[in-house]
Nucleic acid binder design. Structure first.
Lengths: 191, 191
DNA sequence: ATATTTGACTAACGAACGTTAGTTAATAGA
DNA sequence: TCTATTAACTAACGTTCGTTAGTCAAATAT
């Protein structure tokens, strides 16, 4: 019973992710999604209560995945450099595993309505703080140069979060290759 | 005669830039824009022939500005490092001078229809190639480490193009501060 | 002074939107 | 076997969309 339901629900989510990414949330209609799934628009409401419900599920699922990956790093047995490298690797890994959903997560969340919008922002800030903390740790331990904390965090996130544009499923680079190269550039710079 | 026309046209453009940025192109209606301008929706068509015409003007105006800033750098009297620093400074400067339009330029261009979509992409690729060229120059001259060219260019652009999210008109940081710090991070890394 | 152009207005068009109601066949559980 | 649930369908709702037509007063040019 739950099998067919979940499969179809998952199928709708995948289609929605792809459409929201390529056309944007506002320009993707329920009829667009339904056609791609091979079903009538009204049938989508057997699985989701609204169009925004789709967006909400995509955004918060991604948030959860990012958190699940960074949580184990709280254990302090790593150096700041190791922690940062690990955090970057995990972050890129989540993005690569969900390329379409990542793009939605990064660009379409603003179409959420309250109170979900505020919830989402809070969640996102919390996650970004974990990165900032690692970098700050490295700066205090004199492992990293004493750079502008906000701008560094910002730069790192910008670089990482563009991965969904860099990664091609059939390309030569896998997630680990990408995160290694990104870590290298971020930590060592151009020279 | 041309004065009032240009002023109103400019006013519409500014409102459109702001709405497209905050709500997205698809979710911003002509009625939304008109209301913000203080005019009826139909009146907008005295100044622009369509909604997409607005988007087109915003996107291509920005493209032109980016090109105008990087063109003088073609003269080869600078070192690769100096060129990169200058290119970054100019790029950030254009973004900061047009924060709303920049956001539209980076995120809403995909709603252009053909043939403008292809034209835009071509223009954008051309500009990015100029950056790649500078970095490649630096790598050949052994001024920069021998890093993955594509990923480096990508990282730099990601970091730079997020400036419109970093810069606050009333904040402490001006364009030069930001570009300096970004250059520093990109060229020297975290350590 | 007269003629033309500009830029606003109101009203309305057809199309597409998210969503709901009501129905029905197939499936699963008792 | 009988019952309840699931997931699809058709049809339609009220709204909003981009856009056009037609009008008119003010500004500009001749």
């Amino acid at each position: 019973m739950a099998e067919i339901l979940l499969d179809r629900k998952q199928q709708i989510l995948l289609v929605a992710q792809n459409l929201f990414k390529t056309k944007g949330y506002g320009a993707s209609s329920m009829r667009d999604i339904a056609k791609e799934v091979g079903v009538e628009a009204a049938s989508l409401y057997n699985h989701f209560s609204s169009k925004e419900d789709l967006l909400r599920e995509i955004c918060f699922d991604m948030a959860e995945q990012f958190f699940d990956e960074i949580a184990p790093l709280e254990k302090k047995k790593f150096s700041a450099k190791q922690k940062l490298e690990k955090a970057i690797e995990n972050h890129v890994s989540v993005i690569v595993k969900n390329i379409d959903a990542s793009s939605v997560f990064f660009h379409e969340w603003k179409h959420l309505s309250e109170p979900h919008l505020s919830d989402f922002k809070t969640l996102r800030n919390k996650y970004e703080k974990k990165f900032t903390q690692i970098i700050n740790e490295g700066a205090e331990q004199k492992v990293f140069r004493n750079v502008d904390l906000k701008i560094v965090t910002f730069t790192i996130f910008s670089a990482l979060n563009a991965t969904y544009d860099l990664y091609k499923p059939n390309g030569k680079l896998n997630a680990k290759d990408i995160s290694k190269k990104l870590s290298d550039i971020i930590i060592n710079g151009l020279k």
